[in-house]
Amino acid sequence: MTKTHVTTTINGEVTEFLCEPGATLLAVLRNELQLTGTKEGCGTGDCGACSVTLNGRLVCSCLVLGVEAEGAEIGTVEGIGGIDKLHIIQEKFLEHAALQCGICTPGLIVSTKALLAENPEPTEKEARYYLAGNLCRCTGYDKIIRAVMDSAEAMRGDA
């Protein structure tokens, strides 16, 4: 199988990779680029652990081909917060104990960031529906929703 050369921007950095045209963006991120923060829970679009942004839109990276990233802007959890300063959403998730095992957390952080970019003042119901594609089996969502609502408030305060 011949591999295709792809040039894309990941978390603001121009990145090149070679991939088989049938490979998913998720496989490329994890196996080619060692960006293992993006998780695979199902590979079929059902769990949201693989959530990334593609040109600003929230998508499942397991349902995007690596070759479709050509010329696009990708955002993964590795691009949120940093060594010296966590993003408010990350801080709130920690503060509210909104993770237990943490496998859903990268996806939820990416999704929450997308939610609050689209809707800085979501109601609880809007937050729950927006995040319905991010499965969490550990927490029962209570603390996640609290972290999301609190992040929204803190981010509005920051602005």
């Binding site: 966590l86 993770l99 943490g102």
Partner: peptide, 23 residues
């Protein structure tokens, strides 16, 4: 006390390594 979990930083930043993350 409701402390911040010591492994939390790695888990909210995607640095924590799970079963499928080792090559």
């Amino acid at each position: 006390r409701r402390t911040i979990r010591p492994d939390g930083f790695d888990k909210v930043t995607g640095r924590a390594n799970y079963g499928a993350d080792l090559s």
